[in-house]
């Protein structure tokens, strides 16, 4: 009896795992689409939000601020389609690590800025407290989604799976 329950618990993981993966993929896609969409309407403001971190020259910050919303949207679309999932998850994780490092360094330097993660950004009004810890914790949550997809990139309803022409398989090395 004990043996059977142990086997079903272990046996269930390969069945539910692809669905967790699908949720992680679509969740991360939504994060990027919202983040990019909120910023894409005002690229100059996006540049100012990057500049507010005071880690690079103004010209570089505005160029990155202009490019970032489009890159975020493209990442969101790649994840939504499930194309090159492992690479997209890897780039997502790298971007999130950069964002977390940026927020942490702003915190450490005592800057009073909004992270600008989903639009707005820049210095806060007097008397407004920055919320660095929730911002970092939120990004760590997104990082967990990216990490899941890095380890198990194959999910149902993905272009990757369609290209491979087979159902999600165990031990896929893509």
């Amino acid at each position: 009896m004990g043996v059977t329950t142990a086997r079903t618990a272990a046996g269930r993981w390969p069945v539910v795992r692809p669905w967790f993966g699908l949720a992680a993929r679509l969740g991360l896609a939504a994060v990027w689409l919202f983040a990019g969409g909120a910023k894409v309407g005002d690229l100059a403001a996006s540049g100012r939000a990057v500049n507010a971190y005071q880690v690079m020259p103004y010209e570089v910050a505005t160029a990155i601020g202009a490019a970032l919303p489009f890159v975020e949207l493209a990442l969101g679309l790649l994840l939504l389609a499930g194309l090159a999932t492992r690479l997209s998850a890897g780039i997502s994780a790298a971007l999130l690590l950069v964002f977390i490092a940026g927020i942490a360094s702003a915190w450490a330097r005592g800057l009073a800025i909004d992270c600008g993660c989903f639009g707005s950004g820049g210095q806060l009004a007097a008397g407004q407290a920055p919320s660095y810890l929730p911002e970092i914790l939120r990004d760590l949550g997104f990082l967990a989604l990216a990490g899941f997809l890095l380890i198990w990139p194959r999910t149902p309803f993905s272009v990757d799976g369609w290209l491979a022409g087979d159902p999600p398989v165990e031990d896929d090395d893509e």
Binding site: V40, A67, V71, L78
Partner: peptide, 27 residues
């Protein structure tokens, strides 16, 4: 499989680079 992964990865990187360039040129 290795080839397929390589080409989808190249395609994805190209998409991301083009997206960044679009943003920069729009700005």
């Amino acid at each position: 499989r290795r080839k397929r992964t390589l080409w989808t990865s190249v395609g994805a990187v190209v998409v991301l680079v083009i997206a960044g360039l679009i943003g920069w040129s729009v700005y």
